[in-house]
Design a protein around this nucleic acid. Structure first.
Ligand SMILES: [Zn+2]
Ligand SMILES: [Zn+2]
Ligand SMILES: [Zn+2]
Ligand SMILES: [Zn+2]
Lengths: 150, 150
DNA sequence: TCCGACATGAGACTAAGTATCAGTTAGAAT
DNA sequence: ATTCTAACTGATACTTAGTCTCATGTCGGA
């Protein structure tokens, strides 16, 4: 059973209709590069209305078919979702995205729960860096090390 | 030396002018609640133009006077920056934000560096939950546990 | 084959941020 | 104090990302 068919099945099981527009959106994003914006999908899924593409992307997020990658500038990219909980490692120079599932936050959650009285429900982690291919092609004079935007 | 004066000094040291508009923006955000949007500042800093408020907020981010808090819906909030590297714990129901400096990613960085050949340069972590006051006032029937949006 | 809920596309609308540009001003040099 | 100019400003037009509305179309069950 192909990726497309699996997704279509998932749609049906959840009581959503399998329409022409949704198929065209799915075709578009299965053919797209590893990560893409809603706008990419809009251009590839020709004939499908703007609102419908946004609606479908939201639906696919709810169904865990795609997941959101937050770029450092705040813009949203998407990619076909890996199964289960995972995070992203984003290359700052070419935008390439890798998934990783390593996620040990239990100690942090313990600590925060007891020190703040919050009930921790979720978290969101993105890691930024430079992939090997970008590093070799653009050696980069001014190196920045281990910092984040906050 | 007050907070305001310190920030003004920092502006000067970096070669930026201390103008009336910048003072008014600073007044506005020092008087604002712990976290706020650009729009909040716009409304409080009366008479300061839209573009100038955006420009000033960007400048203050560069100077580490304010830092950005990413809400789960993608909207940007700001808060007066704590010194140094830290992350945010955001209450999903009232939006309250706490800083925390606990950040042990060295193991993760090691692991990712060797398994992906990326040079890790930064990361971004936000934790979401419910603060004690929201939990007691709205006991919440459907509990969700330890998940994130990906 | 009928029907109603679901889905759609066009386009108006909103929110958030940027670009342009003529006019103003901080603050340094004289 | 006066002059000078790069930095700064507000108004406003524009862009981008996403939502809302609504009349029309269609999926799929009865
Ligand atoms: Zn790269
Ligand atoms: Zn995680
Ligand atoms: Zn709360
Ligand atoms: Zn950290």
């Amino acid at each position: 059973m192909s990726d497309l068919e699996l997704i279509i099945q998932r749609l049906g099981l959840r009581g959503h209709r399998v329409t022409g527009s949704r198929r065209r959106v799915l075709d578009a994003l299965l053919a797209a590069p590893a990560h893409f914006t809603v706008d990419d999908v809009l251009q590839r899924a020709d004939g499908v209305g703007r609102a419908t593409v946004f609606r479908t992307m939201k639906l696919l997020q709810d169904l865990n078919v795609v997941c959101r990658v937050m770029m450092e500038d705040g813009s949203r990219h998407y990619r076909i979702s890996a199964r289960g909980h995972h995070h992203h490692l984003v290359c700052r120079s070419c935008g390439r995205v890798e998934d990783f599932a390593i996620c040990d936050v239990s100690a942090l959650v313990q600590e925060l729960s007891s020190s703040t009285e919050y009930e921790i429900e979720g978290h969101w982690l993105e890691v930024y860096g430079r992939c090997q291919s970008c590093r070799t092609t653009q050696p980069l004079a001014t190196a920045g090390s281990e910092s984040n935007g906050s």
